[in-house]
Every structure is written in structure tokens, then in C-alpha cells.
Simulated scan of single mutants.
Amino acid sequence: MTTDTNLSQASLALIVSDSAKAQAGAQALRESHPWVPAADADVLVVLGGDGFLLHVLHDMLDWDQLKPVFGMNLGTVGFMMNGPASPAPIAQRIAEAHQVPVRPLRMQAVTRSGTAHTYHAINEVSLLRETRQSAKVEVRINGRVRMDELAGDGILVATPVGSTAYNLSAHGPILPLGSRMLAMTPLNPFRPRRWKGAILPESAEVEFRILEPDKRPVAAVADHKEVRDVAVVRISASAEKELTLLFDPGFTLEERIFAEQFQV
């Protein structure tokens, strides 16, 4: 965890989803605080759902300065968001917020034609078969072959934030925030059938090499960015792109991750 930055005098920018629910919820909030443009703000307040928050975070990865983000749930799931209702003024909520660092993944995908694409993923990087044929993938960690051949629908690498998303649906482990770990989870593995995946240190450099790519084409997806017909995919944590999410006291992402593990 990084040391919390004092946000008691922070200037705030309001960013609102186009959804009717978010726009309606923003009406009173717009009048409750002297907002500034996003470029001039110290903190971004984002109204919407998890999908919109991820969209804002991805846009911010291209900025020169990364800014803390306080999400307010006016969407569907809102796993990474705070509740919209509170008697406290928004400036007080920001000043008292718990700060959670989020380190995205950097994916470099090289296609069979030799074209390289680089994208970042806040949740996960996934490899998915493109046809009815199962994918066959060689798995390397830090330059060493750890699995000669994984056959199945694919494989993913998830951050702690993303471990409760696609990774959890694929029966992967939930990772506590601050663990500095990554989850590697197979997708419907055919061989080795009993392999459930692995937990890796965040410092690990992962490389997937596609076997028989002409017969068994594979796509690589970094959150919502897809590269088709890949030959090699390299994944590593991006320390220089570390983001900060803000949460109300007692409403932290860590608590929700704990709670998720005891759902029945």
C-alpha cells in the first residue's frame, strides 16, 4: 500500500455516465460543490457503474498525470464504487476516503504477421480460442517454460481488482488487495484436465506462445481491447501506471473482496 495523500483541500472534477440514472443522480451533486474541469482537478468523481469507471480509468492511463478516482454507484454492479447516498458533503467524503492502489497489467500481443500491439488491463488479460478447435498454449514465467502445452478454451491473468470478475467466474482465486499477486486461471482446460491455475507474484513476467496457430487461432483481450490471431502474448504489471481508487471508510474494496469469499 502506498502512503495516503492528504486530499482535504483537493479540487474535484465531476465525470458522469450518459445513462439516465447517472444523469439524474448528478443533478443535485452539480449544485453542491464548485467543480473544476478534469484537467485542473486533483481528484475525479465518477458517477455510473463499474464499466464506466473502467472506461474513465483506461482514458486516464494516457494522461501525463494520474489522479485519484472516487466512484459513486449509479449503474448496475458497482463493485468498485461507493454508494451514491451520504449525508456528508462530497468534499468531506474525499478528505476521509481510504486510498487503494491499483496496478494494471501491460499486455504486448504480437500477431502471426509480426505486428505488435500494447494495451493495459485493469481487470485481466485473457486468451480465447477463435474457432471450434481448442487453443493450445505454451506457458512461460520469467523466461522459463512452466507448461509445455495447455489445451482448452484459453487462459487469463488477473489483477487483485479483476480477480472477482471474469477470473472468479472461471473458478479462479480471489486475491486480497495489497497482496501484489496475480491469478493465472485456465478456461475450461482439456489438458491438463485437473490443473486449476496458479498464483504468481506481481513481479512475474508471463509469456504465452500459441501452438498450431494456423489450425487453432487465438485472440488476446486486455479488458475490452482485442487482438486477434496472436502468436505471442507477454504480460507484466505496470508500476509506472499505478492508479488510486478512493473509498468511504468502512466501504472499502478490501471489505467487499472479503465478503465475496463467503457468499453461498
Score class of each variant (00 low, 15 high):
R132Q: 12
S163N: 00
D248S: 07
Q92P: 09
F262Y: 13
A222S: 06
V69A: 09
N188C: 07
E149M: 12
L57N: 06
T159V: 04
W63F: 02
E149V: 03
E149D: 07
S19I: 03
G114W: 15
S17M: 07
W63Y: 05
A121D: 05
V232C: 15
P89M: 10
V218D: 12
L128G: 00
L14F: 10
R103N: 01
L57P: 09
V102K: 01
I155P: 04
R132Y: 12
I90C: 06
E242L: 07
P68Y: 09
H55V: 02
L127F: 02
G48C: 06
I94M: 06
G78F: 06
K21E: 11
R228S: 13
G83T: 15
V139I: 10
G154A: 00
H171R: 08
F52M: 01
E130I: 04
P201T: 01
P176N: 09
K215Q: 13
L168I: 00
M81K: 05
P213C: 04
A151S: 08
T244A: 01
A198W: 04
A39M: 10
I94V: 15
L47C: 11
P192Q: 02
A158W: 09
Q27E: 14
T115V: 11
P173S: 00
E255L: 14
A116Q: 09
